[in-house]
Nucleic acid binder design. Structure first.
Length: 630
RNA sequence: GCCGGUGUAGCUCAGUGGUAGAGCGCACGACUCAUAAUCGUGUGGUCCGGAGUUCGACUCUCCGCACCGGUACCA
């Protein structure tokens, strides 16, 4: 028996899961379920990554200890996975003892490889900021750009992993395993990165407290990614050298969204090489979801209403839509209108109605599933198509082409509808034609059983419902023609996908949208009024604006402050056309030390609201140039 | 800016150096077993624009435009 180990990332648990997480997890689930029905022994991992400064910070704003915060969040993930019918074998938390033991062992192995070294990190350190400032960011006076306080020269010991050493071996691995990173576009990107050179990476943080101490130096905490990536082996029982670990590692597929491929496809394999462990077989990156053409955004309130859509159409429709309409490597645009269309056309009309009409005919004409006694050419054709459908499906799943895989199954669904149409079964009620009717209905039911098997990785609930309605008591996972026993009692048949009317759907809309308020956020990084007063902010007028050669985001502005003119570089080119800016009043940080960006001197900065979009801060009504802002 | 990708019917996408394809949508017809379902027929495209190679290009080359991704700049 073949084994198959598939993972999702362990999601960073500093907020609630969203549709992007759901997409990755559903895709991985479909893959896992597919391999199960193929008879492979599958292990499917998902989980949460619970350490690091960000979680610490978020917990603090909620007034919780980091552990309490994680304990609160983890069940939100597991509940969603239950709702989405995710068949994971483990839900790994990095705060679990299993993981901590494994990490300890792994980091020890890494350390013993000789590729971890302690290096003094020295530089200008700002106590209030708790960070170092690279020399190139500082002017001659060496004061903190934020606090305007003198910086200390501090030496800190830090652990580094000799990532650079693995550059060549990684390139070689990529070349020898063309499918190591999929899709190819990602692979090429990473090869570019590899060829331009890797730098050693810091693997510890001494300023962070929420995490796992390095086993060889407990004063230092493992950097989150160093803590997180090995979860794929710790979850298998790497710590105890368990049987499961040996059975399933190396993983067959690490599935993830595209933004984290770097860590998985460079750092993780290098770490494994250092620890002398086998590499995962494939790193798979899918695209992002947008909603009606817009990027998802918490601040702008653009999100996918999973809850609402699942409520309206059901989990399987949601899964079906994501897997059917989005082609893997690319970004996918989530559109409720498309979900609706898919639901009615593919699920309700094609599949749901097929089941219903066949069951109706059986019930009306037979007491139980009839025995096929009068074979015909057309029956053979159906049987043949069942087999070719399986073959095509196998090929498509090999490349994770869920969309075409489902299309292939649906071609068969439509063929069965046509079979019924062509044979006009419903007319064959006379005694002499009744056996033929029985044969056709048997074949139709068997086709439905067959379809239910093929469809089960994608829409598992539906698959079960179909078999149950056909009269099978135990789910049959084998896609071989002719396994359906005759003489079963068929159920009356409730529509498995009742049509959804757009009108009805409108009702529960009003209360759905409201984005959640971030409540009583405690601010910890307070500055004194004196600190604030150090800022010299003035109103200026943009008198010219032009793009900077070789920079997509930068504009060179001349700003008139009344008493003087300043040249300022601003990173707003993506949001403002130069001509629009001219004549606009802006707020300028006047006493900012000058800097040279892209060979252009910038004597200050202009203020803008900067989130998903960038909007200039400007006085509400026009004021004299040089007016102080405070 | 540099590197890579994409641009084909209203929508989602296949596709090939030789007269353009599927599903959905839409129109018409058939059927009435079924969830106003199904089946058939049809509608619909300057295959991003321009130039070139070729007997012939949507398919190859070059230039350009748009969008996407990676990377640099973001005071």
């Amino acid at each position: 028996m073949k084994t198959f180990y598939v993972t999702t990332p362990i999601y960073y648990a500093n907020g609630e899961p969203h549709a992007g997480h759901a997409y990755t997890t559903i895709a991985a689930d479909a893959l896992a379920r597919y391999h199960r029905i193929k008879g492979n022994e599958v292990f499917f991992l998902t989980g949460v990554d619970e350490h690091g400064a960000n979680i610490d910070k978020t917990a603090e704003t909620e007034g919780l200890s980091p552990q309490a915060f994680c304990d609160k969040l983890a069940p939100i993930f597991t509940k969603l996975w239950e709702r989405l019918n995710i068949s994971n074998d483990i839900f790994l938390r990095t705060t679990s003892e299993l993981h901590k033991r494994g990490i300890k062992k792994f980091l020890t192995a890494l350390y013993e490889s000789g590729d971890v070294y302690k290096a003094p990190y020295e530089g200008y350190y700002c106590r209030p900021c708790e960070r170092f400032f690279p020399e190139k960011e500082l002017a001659d006076d060496k004061i903190c750009p934020i606090h305007k306080l003198p910086l200390e020269w501090v030496k800190e010991e830090n652990y580094f992993f000799r990532l650079s050493k693995y550059q060549d071996r990684l390139i070689q691995h990529y070349n020898e395993n063309p499918d190591f990173v999929y899709p190819e576009s990602r692979r090429n990107e990473l090869l570019n990165v590899l060829e331009s050179g890797l730098e050693d990476t810091s693997i510890s943080r001494s300023s962070v407290s929420w995490g796992i101490p390095l086993p060889f130096d407990p004063e230092h905490i493992a950097y989150v990614w160093i803590d997180a990536l090995p979860n794929y082996i710790t979850a298998l029982g790497y710590d105890a050298d368990s049987e499961r670990y040996h059975k399933f590692w190396p993983a067959d597929v690490h599935m993830m969204a595209k933004e984290i491929t770097r860590f998985h496809a460079l750092l993780w394999p290098a770490m494994l090489m250092a620890a002398n462990l086998p590499l995962p077989k494939q790193i798979v990156a899918h695209g992002w979801l947008t909603k009606d053409g817009e990027a998802l955004s918490k601040t702008r309130g653009i999100f996918i209403d999973m809850d609402g859509d699942i409520g309206t159409y059901g989990v399987d429709a949601f899964r079906y839509y994501l897997l059917r309409e989005f082609s893997f490597g690319n970004d996918g645009d989530y559109r409720p209108a498309r979900l609706h269309a898919r639901y009615n056309a593919d699920l309700a009309n094609d599949l749901g109605n097929l089941l219903n009409r066949v069951l109706g005919l059986v019930n009306k004409n037979f007491d139980e599933i009839p025995v096929p006694t009068t074979p015909d050419d057309i029956d053979e054709e159906i049987k043949g198509m069942a087999q070719t459908t399986v073959d095509q499906l196998d090929a498509q799943m090999e490349t994770l082409a869920f969309d075409t895989a489902l299309e292939t199954i649906w071609e068969f669904v439509r063929r069965v509808n046509r079979y019924i149409q062509q044979t006009e079964v419903w007319t064959l009620t006379k005694p002499e034609t009744k056996p033929r009717m029985g044969t056709i209905l048997y074949n139709s039911l068997e086709a439905l059983r067959f379809i239910s098997v093929l469809v089960s990785p994608f829409i598992p609930d539906t698959a079960e419902k179909i078999q149950k309605q056909i009269g099978l008591t135990e789910f049959d996972t084998v896609a071989e023609w002719g396994r359906l026993p005759a003489a079963l009692k068929v159920s009356k048949g409730e529509p498995i996908f009742p049509r959804v009317d757009l009108k009805k759907e409108k009702a529960p809309k009003s209360d759905a949208v409201k984005p959640k308020q971030k409540s009583d956020k405690k601010t910890t990084d307070l500055i004194s009024f004196a600190d604030f007063q150090k800022l010299d902010l003035q109103v200026g007028n943009v008198i010219s604006a032009e793009p900077i050669e070789g920079a997509d985001r930068l504009l060179k502005l001349q700003v008139d402050l009344g008493t003087e003119k300043r040249q300022v570089v601003a990173g707003i080119a993506e949001h403002y056309k130069p001509d629009i800016l001219i004549g606009k009043q802006v707020i300028v940080v006047v006493n900012l030390e000058p800097a040279t960006i892209r060979n252009v001197e910038s004597q200050g900065m202009i203020l803008a609201a900067s989130g998903d979009s960038v909007v200039l801060a400007t006085p509400e009504t026009e004021v004299p140039l040089g007016t102080k802002v405070r």
